[in-house]
């Protein structure tokens, strides 16, 4: 079973040289720590920055320079800054090659819910609805099962939706799964030490799995 960094590490393997990438808050942010050597990617922060650099050294924090998670950050040689309308302009016009974001639930037809729990938590969708509606390539980083052991990969989302029929790949603490165009999760890889049977038990939505499924390579 993977921890959060393990999930981030596995997702980082999906990065390709030359990609512009938007990383959501939470596990997706950690992906920046595991970009493979020799792969050049440019990170977009939707508050208006391309070319997000590492956190500043202590004492060099600049309140005017933050990412979409409101963390103090730095720029890199070649960075650019723009306003919020242009930021979502480049998202809508599909200039961003890959979007990585978190989810509370994903359904077998690629619906995603990640912004609201009615009556309990109302933080808002931020840029997530824009990203999932426009991105051509989205990877969801999420927990496969909740603390009670219930699946978050469902036949149908129970929470208010963020987007419909838009997710094609999910990486969890248990597995890498594709979502098939005709519906259903397809098991691609399992986390080290996790059995196919356990992934089957942990997936409420329709799951297609071969008897033998390869283990993730995290190196």
């Amino acid at each position: 079973m993977l921890d959060k960094d393990g999930i981030a590490k596995r997702i980082a393997k999906e990065l390709k040289d030359g990609y512009y990438v938007n990383l959501g808050i939470g596990i997706p942010t950690l992906v920046a720590n595991y970009i493979p050597k020799g792969i050049n990617v440019v990170l977009q922060s939707e508050n208006g920055l391309l070319g997000m650099g590492p956190f500043p050294f202590e004492g060099e924090e600049d309140p005017d320079m933050i990412n979409a998670g409101k963390q103090t950050i730095t720029t890199l040689p070649g960075s650019s800054i723009f306003d919020s309308a242009m930021s979502f302009g480049m998202i809508r016009s599909q200039k961003i090659d890959l979007t990585i974001l978190g989810a509370m639930e994903v359904s077998e037809n690629g619906d995603i819910a990640n912004w609201k729990i009615p009556g309990k938590m109302v933080k808002g969708m931020g840029g997530a609805m824009d990203l999932v509606a426009s991105a051509k390539n989205i990877i969801v980083a999420m927990q496969h099962i909740n603390k009670a052991g219930e699946s978050k990969l469902l036949p149908k989302c129970t929470l208010p939706l963020t987007g419909v029929n838009c997710i094609r790949k999910v990486v969890t603490e248990l597995a890498v799964l594709d979502i098939l165009p005709e519906g259903g999760f397809r098991l691609i890889e399992r986390a080290p030490g996790v059995s196919v049977d356990f992934i089957k038990q942990s997936t409420a939505g329709k799951l297609f799995a071969e008897a033998e499924v390869k283990e993730m390579d995290l190196n």
Partner: peptide
């Protein structure tokens, strides 16, 4: 949605009454 918020501002500033967005 954040992009909708930004673009509804932009539309006002560009003198356009409405926009079309896939968000939501």
């Amino acid at each position: 949605p954040q992009g909708t918020l930004a673009t509804r501002c932009m539309a006002a500033g560009y003198g356009m009454p409405a926009i079309f967005t896939p968000a939501g």
